[in-house]
């Protein structure tokens, strides 16, 4: 029994991190119909900034991380995505790869291939509860921060004017523009918000394991993107739930599979992904009306 509780706790913690990453991806997709593989680089830069500033005063270091990923998010839009608004979906998709590819090479060039240690929140990596179940502080923080931030975003999207405009743009940007929503402002807010989320994901990831490598963000992004599609990407709530489920299933399978089967963890996860896609092409949590009609 304590085993099962342990699995569930680990699952919720990892699910919360992936859910945050999923919101960042789904926000951009919602407003721009852009599948942003370069999202991972926002996480990576925030993690490297944490590594470089690890001897600063803690709040300043966290702030620098947020500033860096927000700046990169806005910069990538200005330099690349803004010019690709009318381009075919395959072109924008590959453009985000190319950007991610180039930025990853920049990280290698600037920070080296061996990785840096971002031991900023290392204090969280200690045991909070021990005994039948093991809980580290970072697990508690992941769950609490994840829940708090997701609620804050939900309130922001429902209560603030710009949040309302973002939801309007997500459901139909052309109509929203006709009705006076300023698309540029909405898009800018989406990129800023996704940058903030990426920085928080970087903080939580480095608190759990401080090693920052050039591919850190890409790995998280791939899983989160899979989660977004599995959950149903036309809606922020279903996309977030999808990210959560992928993280949860991954953590639980990682705990529950025996040592000899654990190397096949990603096969099991992705097999489940294929099954869900075949049974519910519109998304696991999508309403019946969403059919998963062609978009890309």
């Amino acid at each position: 029994m304590s085993n099962v509780i342990q699995y569930i706790i680990d699952g919720i913690a990892l699910g919360a991190v992936y859910a945050l990453a999923a919101v960042g991806i789904a926000l951009i997709f919602g407003v721009l119909r852009l599948v942003n593989f370069a999202y991972g680089e926002l996480i990576t830069i925030a993690a490297y900034v944490l590594a470089v500033t690890s001897n600063w005063w803690l709040p300043l270091s966290l702030l620098a991380a947020v500033a860096s990923s927000v700046a990169l998010a806005v910069l990538t839009d200005r330099v690349a995505f803004k010019r690709l608004r009318e381009a075919p979906p395959a072109t924008t998709l590959v453009a985000t790869f190319a950007l991610s590819f180039a930025l990853e090479a920049v990280w290698r060039l600037v920070f080296g291939v061996n990785g840096r240690s971002a031991d900023v929140l290392g204090a969280l990596n200690t045991t909070a509860i021990s005994g039948a179940i093991d809980v580290r502080w970072v697990t508690i923080v992941e769950v609490v921060v994840g829940a708090a931030l997701l609620s804050a975003i939900a309130i922001f999207l429902r209560r603030s004017t710009i949040g309302l405009q973002m939801r309007a743009a997500a459901s139909d940007i052309r109509t929203a523009r006709t009705l006076g929503v300023r698309a540029d402002r909405v898009i800018l807010s989406a990129f800023v918000l996704s940058g903030v989320l990426a920085a928080v994901v970087a903080m939580l990831l480095t608190a759990g394991s401080p090693l920052v490598t050039p591919t850190l963000g890409l790995e998280v992004t791939t899983f989160a993107l899979v989660g977004v599609v599995v959950g149903g990407m036309d809606n922020l709530v279903t996309a977030t739930l999808g990210g959560f489920v992928v993280g949860f299933v991954n953590a639980v399978l990682g705990d529950a599979l025996g040592a000899d089967l654990r190397v096949f963890l990603s096969s099991f996860t992705y097999l489940a992904v294929i099954l869900v896609l075949l049974l519910r092409p519109g998304g696991l949590f999508a309403s019946r009306r969403a059919t998963g009609a062609e978009r890309v």
Binding site: L93, S267, V273, I274
Partner: peptide, 16 residues
């Protein structure tokens, strides 16, 4: 599958 679901489905095949 079509669209992004096809993309993610084939990505899953690559990973497996």
């Amino acid at each position: 599958l079509g669209g992004l679901a096809a993309g993610i489905g084939t990505l899953a095949v690559l990973e497996i």
